[in-house]
Amino acid sequence: MTTPYSTTTLPAPARFLLLGDSHAGCVGRAARQAQLPFVGGPVGSGRDFLGPFLGADDGDGNGDGRDGGDGDGDGDLVFRDAAVGRLVREFLEQLGVSGFAGLGVPLVCTFGLSAHTVATRQNWDVHRDRHGAVPERFLHSRMFADLVRASVRGALAFYGRTAALGLRVLAPMPPQRVPGMSDPAVFFAAQDVIGNELGARGVELIDLRARVTDGTGHQRPVFCQPDDTIHGNLAFGRLVVAQLLDAGL
Rank of each mutant, 00 (worst) to 15 (best):
R238T: 08
L249S: 08
F91P: 01
A189H: 06
L170R: 12
D60I: 06
A30Q: 03
E197S: 13
L95G: 07
L245N: 00
Q176R: 14
F236M: 09
V43P: 04
G71A: 13
L239G: 04
E197D: 10
L156N: 00
D70Y: 05
V203Q: 00
M181G: 02
V39M: 05
F158V: 02
A115D: 02
R149M: 06
N123C: 03
A115R: 04
H127K: 14
A101F: 01
R130H: 12
G132Y: 12
Q33V: 08
G215A: 13
V203T: 01
A115L: 11
A210C: 04
G46E: 05
L147G: 02
G44S: 06
P226H: 14
L147R: 15
V97A: 03
P4R: 08
R149D: 03
G180M: 12
V222T: 10
I194Q: 05
R201Q: 05
L170Q: 07
F91D: 08
R29I: 04
P172G: 08
Q122C: 11
R211N: 06
T3W: 07
P226N: 14
V134S: 09
H131F: 14
S151N: 12
A200I: 00
G104T: 13
E93N: 13
G63Q: 00
G217P: 05
L244I: 11
A189M: 07
G160F: 07
D183W: 05
F100W: 10
G202V: 05
R142E: 14
R137P: 00
R128T: 15
Y159W: 03
V241L: 06
R220Q: 15
